[in-house]
Amino acid sequence: MTARVAADALRDFAGAVFRAAGVGDADARAWAETLVWANLRGVDSHGVLRIPRYLELIGSGAINPRPAMAMRVAAGAIGLLEADRAPGPVAMNRAMDEAIAIARRLHLGWVVARDITHAGAVGHFAVRAAAQGLAGLVMTASGPLMAWPGSRGAVVSTNPIAVAIPAGERPPLLLDMSTAAVALGKVMAAKDAGTPIPEGWGVDGAGRPTTDPAAVATLLPMAGPKGAGLSLMIECLASLAAGNPLLTPSLLGQGPKEGPRMNGLAIAVDVGAFGEAGAFAREVDALAAAVAAAPAGGDAPVMLPGERGGAVMATREREGIALPAGTWTRLEKAAAALGVPMPPRSGGPPARQSG
Protein backbone atom coordinates (compact mmCIF):
# COMPACT_ATOMS: atom_id res chain seq x y z
CA MET A 1 0.00 0.00 0.00
CA THR A 2 1.30 3.45 -0.90
CA ALA A 3 2.00 5.84 1.98
CA ARG A 4 1.46 9.57 1.43
CA VAL A 5 3.53 11.97 3.52
CA ALA A 6 3.57 15.77 3.72
CA ALA A 7 6.81 17.30 2.42
CA ASP A 8 7.64 19.05 5.71
CA ALA A 9 7.11 15.84 7.67
CA LEU A 10 9.27 13.85 5.26
CA ARG A 11 11.99 16.53 5.44
CA ASP A 12 11.94 16.44 9.24
CA PHE A 13 12.08 12.65 9.22
CA ALA A 14 15.03 12.48 6.84
CA GLY A 15 16.93 15.08 8.86
CA ALA A 16 16.25 13.17 12.09
CA VAL A 17 17.53 9.93 10.56
CA PHE A 18 20.75 11.56 9.40
CA ARG A 19 21.30 13.24 12.78
CA ALA A 20 20.78 9.89 14.50
CA ALA A 21 23.44 8.44 12.19
CA GLY A 22 25.96 11.06 13.32
CA VAL A 23 25.53 13.82 10.73
CA GLY A 24 25.75 17.41 12.01
CA ASP A 25 22.48 19.32 12.30
CA ALA A 26 23.03 21.80 9.44
CA ASP A 27 24.37 19.09 7.13
CA ALA A 28 21.48 16.76 8.00
CA ARG A 29 18.98 19.48 7.10
CA ALA A 30 20.74 20.25 3.82
CA TRP A 31 20.87 16.56 2.90
CA ALA A 32 17.20 16.07 3.73
CA GLU A 33 16.24 19.17 1.74
CA THR A 34 17.95 17.84 -1.41
CA LEU A 35 16.25 14.43 -1.16
CA VAL A 36 12.76 15.81 -0.56
CA TRP A 37 13.24 18.39 -3.34
CA ALA A 38 13.74 15.44 -5.69
CA ASN A 39 10.60 13.72 -4.38
CA LEU A 40 8.60 16.91 -4.74
CA ARG A 41 9.62 17.26 -8.38
CA GLY A 42 8.70 13.67 -9.18
CA VAL A 43 12.29 12.40 -9.27
CA ASP A 44 11.60 9.71 -6.67
CA SER A 45 14.63 7.76 -7.84
CA HIS A 46 16.81 10.39 -6.13
CA GLY A 47 14.61 10.96 -3.11
CA VAL A 48 14.23 9.35 0.30
CA LEU A 49 14.32 5.81 -1.10
CA ARG A 50 18.10 6.30 -1.04
CA ILE A 51 18.27 6.75 2.73
CA PRO A 52 18.83 3.08 3.72
CA ARG A 53 21.76 2.82 1.31
CA TYR A 54 23.23 6.09 2.57
CA LEU A 55 23.06 4.75 6.13
CA GLU A 56 24.93 1.62 5.04
CA LEU A 57 27.63 3.81 3.51
CA ILE A 58 27.91 5.88 6.69
CA GLY A 59 28.24 2.65 8.67
CA SER A 60 31.00 1.34 6.40
CA GLY A 61 32.90 4.64 6.48
CA ALA A 62 32.37 5.34 2.79
CA ILE A 63 30.36 8.48 3.67
CA ASN A 64 31.96 10.72 6.28
CA PRO A 65 29.16 12.17 8.47
CA ARG A 66 31.48 14.84 9.91
CA PRO A 67 33.69 15.94 6.98
CA ALA A 68 36.43 18.55 7.23
CA MET A 69 35.88 20.22 3.85
CA ALA A 70 38.39 22.84 2.69
CA MET A 71 39.25 24.82 -0.42
CA ARG A 72 42.66 23.55 -1.57
CA VAL A 73 43.05 25.63 -4.75
CA ALA A 74 41.95 29.19 -5.46
CA ALA A 75 43.37 30.32 -8.81
CA GLY A 76 41.37 33.12 -10.38
CA ALA A 77 38.00 31.69 -11.37
CA ILE A 78 39.10 28.13 -10.53
CA GLY A 79 38.61 26.41 -7.19
CA LEU A 80 39.24 22.91 -5.84
CA LEU A 81 37.19 21.78 -2.85
CA GLU A 82 38.49 18.84 -0.85
CA ALA A 83 35.21 17.27 0.25
CA ASP A 84 36.58 14.57 2.58
CA ARG A 85 33.89 12.03 1.54
CA ALA A 86 31.13 14.39 2.67
CA PRO A 87 27.50 13.55 1.99
CA GLY A 88 27.13 14.50 -1.69
CA PRO A 89 24.48 17.19 -1.25
CA VAL A 90 26.51 18.83 1.52
CA ALA A 91 29.62 18.90 -0.67
CA MET A 92 27.83 20.15 -3.79
CA ASN A 93 26.00 22.87 -1.87
CA ARG A 94 29.40 24.09 -0.68
CA ALA A 95 30.93 23.77 -4.16
CA MET A 96 28.15 25.81 -5.76
CA ASP A 97 28.27 28.43 -3.02
CA GLU A 98 32.01 28.79 -3.63
CA ALA A 99 31.41 29.04 -7.39
CA ILE A 100 28.75 31.71 -6.86
CA ALA A 101 31.09 33.72 -4.62
CA ILE A 102 33.83 33.59 -7.25
CA ALA A 103 31.37 34.55 -10.01
CA ARG A 104 30.32 37.60 -8.02
CA ARG A 105 33.92 38.83 -8.25
CA LEU A 106 35.02 37.52 -11.65
CA HIS A 107 31.72 36.76 -13.49
CA LEU A 108 32.65 33.06 -13.65
CA GLY A 109 33.19 30.50 -10.91
CA TRP A 110 34.39 26.97 -11.68
CA VAL A 111 34.76 24.70 -8.65
CA VAL A 112 35.68 21.01 -8.69
CA ALA A 113 34.80 19.00 -5.59
CA ARG A 114 37.08 16.04 -4.93
CA ASP A 115 36.02 12.92 -3.05
CA ILE A 116 32.31 13.56 -2.61
CA THR A 117 29.67 10.86 -2.29
CA HIS A 118 26.35 10.41 -4.11
CA ALA A 119 24.91 13.88 -4.67
CA GLY A 120 21.32 13.05 -5.57
CA ALA A 121 19.40 15.28 -7.98
CA VAL A 122 22.08 17.65 -9.26
CA GLY A 123 19.50 20.09 -10.60
CA HIS A 124 19.03 21.20 -7.00
CA PHE A 125 22.51 22.75 -6.97
CA ALA A 126 22.19 24.31 -10.42
CA VAL A 127 18.97 26.04 -9.32
CA ARG A 128 20.93 27.43 -6.36
CA ALA A 129 22.82 29.61 -8.84
CA ALA A 130 19.79 30.51 -10.94
CA ALA A 131 18.00 31.76 -7.83
CA GLN A 132 20.73 34.40 -7.61
CA GLY A 133 20.50 35.42 -11.27
CA LEU A 134 23.42 33.27 -12.43
CA ALA A 135 23.49 30.36 -14.85
CA GLY A 136 24.34 27.17 -12.99
CA LEU A 137 25.96 24.03 -14.40
CA VAL A 138 26.55 20.92 -12.30
CA MET A 139 28.06 17.54 -13.16
CA THR A 140 29.11 14.58 -11.05
CA ALA A 141 31.30 11.59 -11.87
CA SER A 142 31.51 8.10 -10.38
CA GLY A 143 32.87 4.65 -11.13
CA PRO A 144 31.70 2.32 -13.92
CA LEU A 145 27.95 1.74 -13.98
CA MET A 146 27.11 1.95 -17.68
CA ALA A 147 28.04 0.04 -20.81
CA TRP A 148 30.18 1.51 -23.59
CA PRO A 149 28.85 0.88 -27.12
CA GLY A 150 30.19 -2.48 -28.22
CA SER A 151 31.30 -3.46 -24.72
CA ARG A 152 29.94 -6.06 -22.34
CA GLY A 153 29.72 -4.81 -18.78
CA ALA A 154 30.20 -1.39 -17.24
CA VAL A 155 32.88 0.93 -18.64
CA VAL A 156 31.72 4.51 -17.95
CA SER A 157 29.30 5.95 -15.40
CA THR A 158 25.81 7.41 -15.51
CA ASN A 159 27.30 10.85 -14.89
CA PRO A 160 24.48 13.39 -14.59
CA ILE A 161 24.52 16.97 -15.85
CA ALA A 162 22.20 19.85 -14.96
CA VAL A 163 21.91 23.36 -16.37
CA ALA A 164 19.75 26.08 -14.80
CA ILE A 165 19.11 29.34 -16.64
CA PRO A 166 17.75 32.35 -14.72
CA ALA A 167 14.74 34.10 -16.20
CA GLY A 168 12.82 37.28 -15.49
CA GLU A 169 9.09 36.81 -14.95
CA ARG A 170 9.05 33.01 -15.10
CA PRO A 171 10.84 30.26 -13.14
CA PRO A 172 14.36 29.31 -14.26
CA LEU A 173 14.76 26.86 -17.11
CA LEU A 174 16.17 23.62 -15.72
CA LEU A 175 17.63 20.69 -17.63
CA ASP A 176 18.57 17.82 -15.29
CA MET A 177 19.52 14.58 -16.99
CA SER A 178 21.56 11.44 -16.74
CA THR A 179 23.94 10.34 -19.46
CA ALA A 180 22.33 6.90 -19.19
CA ALA A 181 19.07 5.90 -20.82
CA VAL A 182 17.70 6.14 -17.28
CA ALA A 183 19.07 6.90 -13.82
CA LEU A 184 19.94 3.88 -11.68
CA GLY A 185 17.52 5.19 -9.06
CA LYS A 186 14.62 4.66 -11.46
CA VAL A 187 15.54 0.99 -11.67
CA MET A 188 15.63 0.96 -7.85
CA ALA A 189 12.22 2.66 -7.75
CA ALA A 190 10.75 0.05 -10.13
CA LYS A 191 12.16 -2.70 -7.95
CA ASP A 192 10.53 -1.13 -4.88
CA ALA A 193 7.23 -0.79 -6.72
CA GLY A 194 7.40 -4.33 -8.13
CA THR A 195 6.97 -3.13 -11.70
CA PRO A 196 8.89 -4.07 -14.87
CA ILE A 197 11.12 -1.57 -16.64
CA PRO A 198 11.05 -0.66 -20.35
CA GLU A 199 13.40 -2.31 -22.79
CA GLY A 200 16.55 -0.31 -23.42
CA TRP A 201 17.18 0.68 -19.79
CA GLY A 202 19.67 -2.03 -18.88
CA VAL A 203 21.16 -5.47 -19.41
CA ASP A 204 21.71 -8.41 -17.10
CA GLY A 205 25.00 -9.98 -16.05
CA ALA A 206 25.32 -11.79 -19.37
CA GLY A 207 24.78 -8.59 -21.36
CA ARG A 208 21.23 -9.51 -22.39
CA PRO A 209 18.42 -6.91 -22.45
CA THR A 210 16.06 -7.27 -19.50
CA THR A 211 12.81 -5.72 -18.25
CA ASP A 212 13.29 -7.13 -14.73
CA PRO A 213 14.69 -4.34 -12.50
CA ALA A 214 16.15 -6.94 -10.11
CA ALA A 215 18.17 -8.47 -12.96
CA VAL A 216 19.80 -5.24 -14.20
CA ALA A 217 23.58 -5.47 -13.89
CA THR A 218 24.57 -2.61 -16.19
CA LEU A 219 22.71 0.43 -17.48
CA LEU A 220 22.72 1.47 -21.13
CA PRO A 221 23.84 4.92 -22.34
CA MET A 222 21.42 7.57 -23.54
CA ALA A 223 21.49 7.73 -27.35
CA GLY A 224 24.28 5.15 -27.53
CA PRO A 225 27.68 6.71 -28.24
CA LYS A 226 26.39 10.22 -27.47
CA GLY A 227 25.55 9.43 -23.86
CA ALA A 228 28.66 7.33 -23.39
CA GLY A 229 30.89 10.02 -24.88
CA LEU A 230 29.34 12.75 -22.73
CA SER A 231 29.91 10.63 -19.63
CA LEU A 232 33.58 10.22 -20.55
CA MET A 233 33.99 14.00 -20.95
CA ILE A 234 32.45 14.59 -17.51
CA GLU A 235 34.99 12.16 -16.03
CA CYS A 236 37.72 14.32 -17.56
CA LEU A 237 36.30 17.60 -16.24
CA ALA A 238 35.20 16.44 -12.78
CA SER A 239 37.67 13.68 -11.92
CA LEU A 240 40.89 14.06 -13.89
CA ALA A 241 40.91 17.81 -13.18
CA ALA A 242 40.60 16.98 -9.47
CA GLY A 243 43.52 14.56 -9.61
CA ASN A 244 41.11 11.84 -8.55
CA PRO A 245 40.45 9.52 -11.53
CA LEU A 246 37.62 7.06 -11.05
CA LEU A 247 37.29 5.07 -14.28
CA THR A 248 40.93 4.26 -15.00
CA PRO A 249 41.67 2.50 -11.67
CA SER A 250 38.45 0.50 -11.87
CA LEU A 251 38.98 -0.55 -15.49
CA LEU A 252 42.54 -1.61 -14.67
CA GLY A 253 41.30 -3.70 -11.75
CA GLN A 254 42.73 -1.47 -9.06
CA GLY A 255 39.37 -0.36 -7.66
CA PRO A 256 38.68 2.52 -5.26
CA LYS A 257 40.80 3.00 -2.16
CA GLU A 258 37.82 2.96 0.20
CA GLY A 259 34.17 2.66 -0.73
CA PRO A 260 32.50 4.30 -3.71
CA ARG A 261 34.24 7.55 -4.63
CA MET A 262 32.85 10.44 -6.65
CA ASN A 263 33.74 13.93 -7.78
CA GLY A 264 31.62 16.93 -8.69
CA LEU A 265 31.79 20.13 -10.72
CA ALA A 266 29.84 23.31 -9.98
CA ILE A 267 29.93 26.26 -12.39
CA ALA A 268 28.28 29.64 -11.91
CA VAL A 269 28.19 32.17 -14.77
CA ASP A 270 27.19 35.83 -14.55
CA VAL A 271 25.33 35.79 -17.87
CA GLY A 272 24.09 39.32 -17.24
CA ALA A 273 27.64 40.62 -17.66
CA PHE A 274 27.36 40.18 -21.45
CA GLY A 275 24.99 43.12 -21.88
CA GLU A 276 22.77 45.63 -20.16
CA ALA A 277 21.19 44.76 -16.84
CA GLY A 278 18.10 42.60 -17.22
CA ALA A 279 18.51 42.02 -20.96
CA PHE A 280 19.40 38.33 -20.64
CA ALA A 281 16.47 37.57 -18.34
CA ARG A 282 14.06 39.31 -20.74
CA GLU A 283 15.40 37.28 -23.67
CA VAL A 284 14.97 34.05 -21.70
CA ASP A 285 11.36 34.98 -21.00
CA ALA A 286 10.80 35.76 -24.69
CA LEU A 287 12.37 32.49 -25.81
CA ALA A 288 10.32 30.49 -23.33
CA ALA A 289 7.12 32.19 -24.47
CA ALA A 290 7.93 31.50 -28.13
CA VAL A 291 8.59 27.82 -27.49
CA ALA A 292 5.47 27.48 -25.34
CA ALA A 293 3.39 29.01 -28.14
CA ALA A 294 4.51 26.37 -30.67
CA PRO A 295 1.58 24.29 -31.99
CA ALA A 296 1.21 21.01 -30.12
CA GLY A 297 1.79 17.93 -32.24
CA GLY A 298 -0.28 15.57 -30.12
CA ASP A 299 -2.15 15.21 -26.85
CA ALA A 300 0.82 16.22 -24.69
CA PRO A 301 1.26 19.95 -24.02
CA VAL A 302 4.37 21.85 -25.10
CA MET A 303 6.53 22.13 -21.97
CA LEU A 304 9.86 23.80 -21.28
CA PRO A 305 12.75 22.27 -19.31
CA GLY A 306 11.81 22.21 -15.64
CA GLU A 307 8.07 22.82 -16.13
CA ARG A 308 7.01 19.20 -15.62
CA GLY A 309 8.91 19.06 -12.34
CA GLY A 310 7.47 22.40 -11.28
CA ALA A 311 3.92 21.19 -11.92
CA VAL A 312 4.52 17.96 -9.99
CA MET A 313 6.01 20.00 -7.13
CA ALA A 314 2.90 22.17 -6.89
CA THR A 315 0.71 19.07 -6.67
CA ARG A 316 2.87 17.24 -4.16
CA GLU A 317 3.27 20.28 -1.93
CA ARG A 318 -0.51 20.36 -1.77
CA GLU A 319 -1.31 16.63 -1.63
CA GLY A 320 1.81 15.08 -0.12
CA ILE A 321 4.47 12.73 -1.47
CA ALA A 322 3.49 9.15 -2.28
CA LEU A 323 5.97 6.49 -1.16
CA PRO A 324 5.66 2.94 -2.55
CA ALA A 325 5.19 0.13 -0.03
CA GLY A 326 8.71 -1.17 -0.67
CA THR A 327 10.26 2.23 0.04
CA TRP A 328 8.16 2.71 3.18
CA THR A 329 9.14 -0.73 4.51
CA ARG A 330 12.86 -0.14 3.98
CA LEU A 331 12.66 3.31 5.59
CA GLU A 332 10.73 1.85 8.52
CA LYS A 333 13.42 -0.76 9.11
CA ALA A 334 16.22 1.80 8.89
CA ALA A 335 14.42 4.23 11.21
CA ALA A 336 13.70 1.51 13.78
CA ALA A 337 17.41 0.66 13.99
CA LEU A 338 18.13 4.30 14.89
CA GLY A 339 15.13 4.83 17.17
CA VAL A 340 13.59 7.44 14.86
CA PRO A 341 9.77 7.54 14.52
CA MET A 342 8.30 7.30 11.04
CA PRO A 343 6.56 10.41 9.69
CA PRO A 344 2.75 10.56 9.93
CA ARG A 345 0.92 9.53 6.80
CA SER A 346 -1.54 12.03 5.38
CA GLY A 347 -4.91 11.06 3.94
CA GLY A 348 -4.96 7.69 5.67
CA PRO A 349 -4.46 5.88 8.99
CA PRO A 350 -1.49 6.93 11.17
CA ALA A 351 1.77 5.21 10.40
CA ARG A 352 3.29 2.71 12.80
CA GLN A 353 5.99 4.24 14.98
CA SER A 354 9.47 2.75 14.90
CA GLY A 355 11.69 2.32 17.93
Rank of each mutant, 00 (worst) to 15 (best):
W110I: 13
P209H: 03
M313T: 14
A300W: 09
I165S: 01
E235T: 02
A296N: 11
R19K: 11
G243I: 04
A26N: 09
P249R: 10
A223D: 13
G306K: 05
A119G: 09
R152D: 13
A6W: 05
C236P: 00
F280I: 05
L265E: 08
T195R: 15
A325E: 15
E199L: 15
V155D: 05
E82D: 15
P87R: 03
A70I: 04
A215C: 07
L40W: 03
A290N: 09
G207W: 06
S60Q: 07
S45V: 08
L287S: 12
G309S: 04
P344V: 06
L247E: 08
G185F: 00
R316N: 03
A190R: 05
T327K: 07
L81G: 02
A77Q: 13
I51R: 06
T218M: 04
G339V: 06
V182D: 04
F13H: 13
V216S: 05
M146S: 10
P171L: 04
R170E: 14
I197A: 03
A322Q: 12
S60L: 05
H118T: 08
P249F: 06
R308I: 13
L81I: 04
L304T: 05
P144D: 03
N159S: 09
L251F: 10
L230C: 03
L108F: 14
R208E: 15
I321M: 07
S250D: 12
T34G: 04
R11N: 11
L137S: 01
R4H: 13
M177V: 15
L10D: 07
